[in-house]
Lab assay of single mutants.
Amino acid sequence: SEEELEEFAKEVLRRGITIIVNGIRITEVEIFVKVLREILEKR
Rank of each mutant, 00 (worst) to 15 (best):
I24Y: 08
E28V: 06
E38Y: 15
V12N: 00
I31M: 11
I31F: 09
R14F: 05
G23Q: 04
R25S: 07
R14M: 07
V21F: 14
F8A: 02
L40D: 00
T18M: 13
L40V: 03
E38T: 10
L13M: 07
L13Q: 00
R14G: 07
I17Y: 15
I39E: 03
F32T: 01
E7R: 13
I31V: 11
R14V: 02
G23S: 05
N22P: 03
E4W: 15
K10G: 03
R37L: 13
V21Y: 15
N22V: 05
I39W: 15
V29I: 10
E2F: 15
G16I: 15
S1Q: 07
I19D: 00
R37H: 04
K34P: 00
E3F: 14
V35K: 04
R43S: 07
F8Y: 09
S1C: 13
I20C: 09
R37C: 04
R37P: 00
E4G: 09
E28F: 07
I19W: 05
I26W: 05
R37V: 05
V33A: 02
T27F: 09
I39H: 05
S1R: 09
K10W: 09
R14K: 09
V21A: 06
I19S: 01
V21K: 03
G23I: 12
E3D: 11
E6T: 13
I26H: 03
R37E: 01
R25F: 06
R43F: 14
K34M: 13
K42N: 10
E2R: 12
I20P: 00
E4R: 12
R37W: 10
V12G: 00
K34H: 04
E38W: 15
E7M: 10
E30I: 10
L5N: 01
E38A: 12
I20Y: 08
E38D: 10
E28D: 13
R43K: 10
T18G: 05
E3H: 12
S1M: 13
R25C: 06
R25K: 09
T18W: 14
I24A: 04
T27C: 08
R14P: 00
K34N: 06
I19F: 07
K42I: 10
E30Y: 12
I26K: 02
G23T: 05
R14Q: 05
E41C: 15
I20E: 06
E6Q: 12
V29E: 02
N22G: 07
L13P: 00
E38F: 15
E7N: 11
L40R: 04
I24K: 07
E3V: 10
L36D: 01
E2G: 08
E11D: 08
V21G: 02
L36R: 02
V21T: 03
V33F: 07
K10M: 09
I31L: 09
E3W: 15
I26M: 05
I19A: 01
V21Q: 03
R37K: 12
R15N: 05
I26Q: 01
E3L: 13
E3A: 13
L13R: 00
E2M: 14
S1A: 09
V12K: 02
F32Y: 05
I26E: 02
R37T: 05
R14A: 09
A9M: 11
R25T: 09
K34T: 05
V21C: 11
I20T: 08
V12M: 14
V29G: 01
V12A: 07
E2W: 15
K10V: 08
T18K: 12
F32M: 10
I19E: 00
I24W: 13
V29H: 04
E4V: 10
E7A: 14
E11A: 13
I31Q: 14
T18V: 14
I26P: 04
I19H: 00
G16W: 15
E3N: 12
I26Y: 04
R25G: 03
T27E: 05
I20L: 08
E7T: 09
V12T: 06
I20V: 08
K42G: 10
K34C: 15
K42Y: 09
K42W: 11
F8L: 08
N22Q: 06
G23Y: 14
E2K: 12
E3G: 11
F8S: 01
E7I: 08
N22W: 14
E11T: 09
S1T: 11
K42F: 13
E30Q: 09
E3R: 13
R43L: 15
K34D: 02
R25A: 08
L13E: 00
K34A: 09
N22Y: 10
G16V: 14
E2Y: 15
R43C: 15
I31T: 09
T18Y: 13
F32R: 01
A9I: 15
I31A: 14
L13G: 00
T27A: 05
E3I: 10
F8I: 04
I17L: 12
R25V: 10
T27R: 06
E38N: 09
V33R: 06
E6S: 06
K34R: 11
V33T: 03
E4Q: 10
V35L: 13
K42H: 10
E30A: 14
V21E: 00
F32N: 00
E38R: 10
R15C: 10
G16M: 14
L40H: 03
I19C: 03
I24L: 13
I26T: 04
I39F: 14
V33Q: 01
F8H: 02
I17F: 14
S1H: 09
I24M: 09
E6V: 15
I26A: 02
V12H: 02
I19K: 00
E4K: 12
V29F: 11
I31Y: 07
V35C: 06
R14W: 13
K10H: 05
V21L: 14
I17C: 14
T18L: 14
R14Y: 04
E4T: 11
E4H: 09
L5H: 01
K42M: 12
F8W: 15
I17G: 11
R43I: 14
V21M: 10
V12Y: 08
F32E: 00
I26G: 02
E41L: 14
K42S: 11
E11R: 14
E2N: 12
R15F: 08
S1K: 08
I24C: 11
R25E: 08
E11F: 07
L40K: 03
I31G: 06
K34G: 03
L5M: 06
E2T: 11
